[in-house]
Amino acid sequence: MPANKKYLTPSPWQRFAKISAAILGGLMVAVTFHMALASCFDHVTVIITCTFSAFILWAVLMVLAFLGKNGWKIWGIYLLASVLLGVIFYFGNQTHPIV
C-alpha cells in the first residue's frame, strides 16, 4: 500500500534539510551536550555515560527532525542549541579546567 501523498515532503530541498539535520545536526547537539556536561561535572563519569546516552539522544533528535514541517527551521534550532551548549562548554572549561 503506497504512502498518502499529502504526508510526503514535496520539495527535495526540504527532504535534504531534514535528513542532514537529523544526521549531522542531531549528532552536533548530542556531542556538544555531553561536552557541556563534562565541563561542569566529573568528565570521566560523563564520558563513560556518554557512550550510551549520546546514542539515545541522537536517535531522539533524529526523530524530532522528521516531525517538523520545515527542515531549515530544524537546522536553525539545532545550530542554536549547539552554539549555546558550546558556550557553556567554553565557560565551564574556563572555570573548571580539565587537567
Rank of each mutant, 00 (worst) to 15 (best):
M1K: 06
A3G: 07
A3F: 15
N4C: 13
K5Q: 10
K5R: 13
K6R: 13
Y7T: 07
Y7M: 08
T9S: 10
P10S: 08
P10M: 14
P10Q: 11
S11E: 13
P12N: 14
P12R: 10
W13S: 08
W13F: 13
R15Q: 14
R15T: 15
R15I: 03
F16D: 11
A17T: 00
K18R: 12
K18Q: 11
I19T: 15
S20R: 09
S20Y: 12
S20G: 11
A21D: 03
A22M: 12
I23S: 05
I23C: 09
I23L: 15
L24E: 09
L24I: 12
G26D: 04
G26M: 02
V29W: 03
A30H: 02
V31K: 05
V31D: 04
H34D: 11
M35P: 02
A36K: 08
L37M: 14
A38H: 07
A38L: 11
C40K: 11
F41V: 00
F41W: 13
D42S: 05
D42F: 02
D42G: 11
H43W: 06
V44E: 10
I47E: 03
T49E: 05
T51H: 04
F52E: 03
S53L: 10
A54E: 09
I56Q: 00
L57P: 00
L57G: 00
W58Y: 07
W58I: 00
W58C: 08
V60G: 07
M62Y: 06
V63D: 11
V63P: 01
V63T: 11
V63L: 06
V63K: 07
L64T: 09
F66L: 10
G68N: 06
K69C: 04
N70C: 04
N70S: 09
G71P: 12
K73V: 12
K73T: 10
I74R: 00
I74T: 07
G76T: 01
Y78V: 02
Y78M: 03
Y78I: 02
Y78G: 02
L79T: 12
L80H: 01
L80D: 03
A81M: 12
V83I: 15
L85D: 04
G86D: 08
V87A: 15
I88V: 15
F89I: 01
Y90H: 10
F91K: 13
F91D: 03
G92Q: 06
N93M: 14
T95P: 01
P97Y: 12
I98L: 15
I98C: 12
I98M: 14
I98T: 08
